[in-house]
Design a protein around this nucleic acid. Structure first.
Lengths: 334, 334
DNA sequence: GTGAAAGCGCTAACAT
DNA sequence: ATGTTAGCGCTTTCAC
């Protein structure tokens, strides 16, 4: 015999009060006479009653749920984002409805749309083209986008300062006396463009320009694939800035396999400061874009929006350069 | 002017049919006359109508949502679990309600209880004591536990074959001629006991026994902390099996800092086959417990239970030994 | 093949 | 301070 979950009516009957009283008690909407309060407390505890969130939604219109869509939860940068978002959400009594899009552009919009029906607001990390964000408007829910170019004015978004992060990495390499600097990008990502601009702007101040290569996905496997053609190309760069740490790590590994010595033959660095980099060898120089904090900020923005507060326009999050062994070799001919 | 989301009544009115008809159409419960079907299709498309999942739940009792609680989403093993679970869930039209417990035992039960109210079933990864699982029964929802000892008969659970995995690692080290083998465990985890048993049983067949050390958390930081006292202890082991790859990676890094040469001075390996290990140096020998597949299987079990199907009792998932450089050094005196 | 109506568990407006 | 009641959007008998 399955025992039925107690409803508000069970509690009301059992405590000898009306459902309205129980409802008000549960929500702390009102004060009660001592005897009623005592009976209510006892009955609720005895029955183990908890209000049904879905029924509650029916009348309040609030789900206390935030939809989170990420391209790939296994990318440590995205994992951290979710971690940070989860922390703030719990703090404000929200729960995360998570969808891993698996980098599947085809189902992307459909999944997000379905997600939107069940939540109060959305935290989105997609590769959706800018014009496609128009399609999100009819969802009629507060949305915060993550890792989107900040000049995208239509929807709220939080991103690291990608330009500055790129600039930092390039400056560091210049300081280390590297001159022939390559950039291994991932053109599908919006952040890629800005990171490259940061690199380019910095190098320009020294009268240099980066040689640009492309990876076909933001993964270590893509870094491995790109490696040989870069290292055995006509003019091998001194140093390589990769679109993210995963690509850098893959490149690093493959370069070692190919018999190159790192960072002696080529220095390598990336973006994101994923934990892999700390335990790799040589340790990976990177720039910490503070993913977890980014997730917290994004969720904070959403919570504010949901509470009807104005968006506190804080600037992009300051990145931090993390120098490790992968860029500390003496460049050729220096 | 905010435009209201269309309800089933809007569609009914606009198409000149009853709400019952629209409902049946949406659910494919019935066939319709051509004209009605055409009108319905057109109206639904025009209004962009989609049924409200919460209202639907009110009558069906189904949320089409699975609650997933993990100890720490940033632990790559758990991330993979979620990835696999998400894949199967989407396939069966479920969505994941995710809660990261942040290894916080205090709020654990409370969070899970709240989660249970909103979902059809639960996928749980907790350190809750076995007797505490009794507290989950009143939740009255199908539950699949992850990474729990298989002898725990009360609740369904899926786990890797931890004993075999431990055995494999120990056997590999014996094959490599290591004799003085240590085990750096994390006693708070149930899997830890079984992994150690696997190691112990294997070594026993060679007349040996592992020396056991303890880490205070399942993280790289804990591996770093444990390192010096093990390596500078009275009798330094030849080889060290760590409770998981994170601990192993931390140990590896710190050992290098302390001036040891790996695997020459000490071989190191772990469990989980997290991607870090492939890009570390020396590459980390590990045993792949197939986390992502584990997540898939767990979710499959849950989906079956929800569909009223009997649990197909498949045995534990076969682990796979992944040998890399961290255990390929020549042992001392061999 | 289609419609009318009851009711899921809850909150909020209003009455007392 | 407490109770009555009308829905929220939907599915599901049960008529027709």
């Amino acid at each position: 015999m399955k025992k039925r979950v107690p409803t508000i009516r069970d509690v009301a009957a059992s405590a000898g009060v009306s459902v309205a009283t129980v409802s008000k008690f549960m929500n702390g909407t009102q004060r009660f006479s001592a005897p009623v309060e005592a009976r209510l407390k006892a009955t609720i505890a005895r029955l183990g009653y908890q209000s049904n969130p879905h029924a509650r939604y029916m009348v309040t219109g609030e789900t206390r749920t935030i939809g989170v869509a990420v391209l790939d939860i296994r990318n440590p940068h995205f994992t951290s984002l979710v971690k940070g978002a989860n922390r703030i959400a719990l703090q404000f009594d929200y729960t995360l409805l998570l969808v891993d899009l698996e980098e599947n552009a085809a189902r992307e919009y459909q999944l997000i749309e379905a997600l939107a029906r069940r939540v109060d607001g959305l935290l989105l990390n997609t590769r959706m083209a800018d014009d496609a964000t128009d399609r999100l408007a009819p969802l009629n829910k507060p949305i915060v986008m993550i890792n989107r170019a900040s000049d995208d004015s239509k929807v709220a978004s939080v991103s690291p300062d990608n330009h500055r992060a790129g600039f930092m990495l390039a400056q560091h390499l210049l300081n280390q006396n590297y001159r022939d600097i390559g950039y291994l990008g991932y053109p599908q990502s919006r952040a890629n463009t800005i990171r490259l601009e940061g690199v380019t702007d910095c190098l320009a101040s020294a009268g240099l320009a980066p040689r640009v290569f492309e990876a076909d996905s933001p993964t270590a496997a893509a870094g491995e694939r790109a490696c040989s053609s870069i290292l055995f190309g006509p003019e091998r760069p001194d140093a390589l800035i990769c679109y993210n740490d995963l690509i850098a790590l893959g490149f690093l590994k493959e370069a070692r396999n190919l018999g190159f010595s790192l960072p002696g033959d080529v220095a390598v660095c990336g973006f994101d400061n994923i934990s892999h980099g700390e335990y790799a060898w040589p340790g990976l120089t990177t720039v910490d874009i503070r993913s977890e904090r980014l997730g917290e900020i994004a969720m904070l923005r959403l919570v504010d929006a949901l509470a009807g507060k104005p968006a506190s326009e804080s600037g992009p999050l300051e990145p931090r350069l993390i120098v490790r062994e992968s860029t500390l070799g003496r460049p050729r001919g220096a």
